[in-house]
Amino acid sequence: MKPLRIPKSLHDIFGERQTVGAFAAVLLFGGLLTAALGLRFPELTNSLPVWRSALALVLIFDIFAGCIANFTASTSNFYAARKNNRLLFIAVHVHIVLVALLLNANIGYSIAVWSYTIAGAFIVNALAGQRTQLFVAALLLCAGIGGTSLLPDVQPYMLIVGILVMMKVLFSFAVDHYGKAIVNDGR
């Protein structure tokens, strides 16, 4: 199957060329999981203005879809070739804090997840080209999931969003999954 050429305005999300299957999987995963979260936790948007609910759900969709998009070869390779873009992408990911503010959710939890995720992503990104990058990313992701799951008074929907923020930025995005940044050391 011939890959789709992605418009330049969407390169930061999908890379330059994406298969139809990967493109559909990203959108379906993001859409279905966002819908499932909203159906399972109707209190998520109860008593909120429509604009806040809609904006929060769009940001949640972006988090969920980004988890999968960042695992595609096209997106991973796009950022492996553009180190400054990767640093900027990591730095601007304040989604979970915005979601918490929009939903009147636990802001302390969202700041803790955001801080840990961004710090971990910068550490993992600094290991680009090293064989330990994937291991360190997995270690930090597992520690983050375990640690944040133990925090008190976290709404279940925010726990899900927080875990997937860590997956998206710390592991899915910060890791060069296809070895485009690995320096050939002759082995």
Rank of each mutant, 00 (worst) to 15 (best):
R5H: 10
P7A: 11
K8H: 05
K8M: 02
K8R: 12
L10G: 03
L10E: 05
H11K: 06
D12Y: 13
F14N: 10
G15V: 09
Q18A: 14
G21R: 11
G21S: 12
F23W: 13
F23H: 09
A24D: 00
A25D: 00
A25H: 01
A25S: 12
A25T: 12
V26E: 00
L27N: 14
F29E: 08
F29K: 06
G30Q: 07
G30L: 05
G30Y: 02
G30P: 10
G30V: 08
G31C: 10
L32Y: 06
L33K: 03
T34L: 08
T34A: 10
T34E: 07
T34S: 13
T34H: 09
A36D: 10
A36Q: 07
L39P: 01
E43R: 08
E43K: 04
L44R: 00
L44F: 10
L44A: 06
T45Y: 09
N46L: 09
N46C: 04
S47C: 04
P49R: 12
V50K: 08
V50F: 14
W51L: 08
R52P: 01
S53L: 07
S53Q: 08
A54W: 13
A54S: 15
L55Y: 12
L55F: 14
L55D: 07
L55N: 07
A56D: 01
A56E: 01
L57M: 15
L57K: 00
V58K: 01
V58C: 12
V58Y: 00
L59G: 01
I60A: 15
F61R: 04
F61L: 13
D62I: 05
D62A: 09
F64L: 15
F64R: 03
A65I: 09
A65Q: 02
A65R: 00
A65C: 09
G66L: 05
C67S: 13
I68F: 14
I68V: 15
I68T: 10
I68K: 02
I68R: 02
I68H: 03
F71P: 00
T72M: 03
T75H: 10
T75C: 09
F78I: 07
F78V: 07
Y79V: 14
A81K: 10
A81Q: 10
A81Y: 01
K83L: 03
N84Q: 14
N85H: 12
N85P: 00
N85F: 12
N85A: 14
N85Q: 10
N85C: 02
N85S: 09
R86G: 07
L87M: 08
L88G: 03
I90W: 02
I90T: 11
A91F: 14
A91W: 11
H93D: 01
H93S: 02
V94D: 04
I96M: 07
I96N: 04
V97N: 01
V97K: 02
V97H: 01
L98G: 06
V99E: 00
V99S: 00
V99Y: 00
A100F: 05
L101I: 14
L101V: 15
L101M: 13
L103H: 07
A105F: 04
A105I: 06
N106M: 07
S110R: 03
S110A: 15
S110Q: 06
I111G: 01
A112P: 11
V113A: 03
V113T: 06
W114A: 11
S115G: 12
Y116L: 11
Y116H: 06
T117C: 15
I118T: 11
G120L: 05
A121S: 15
V124Y: 02
V124D: 04
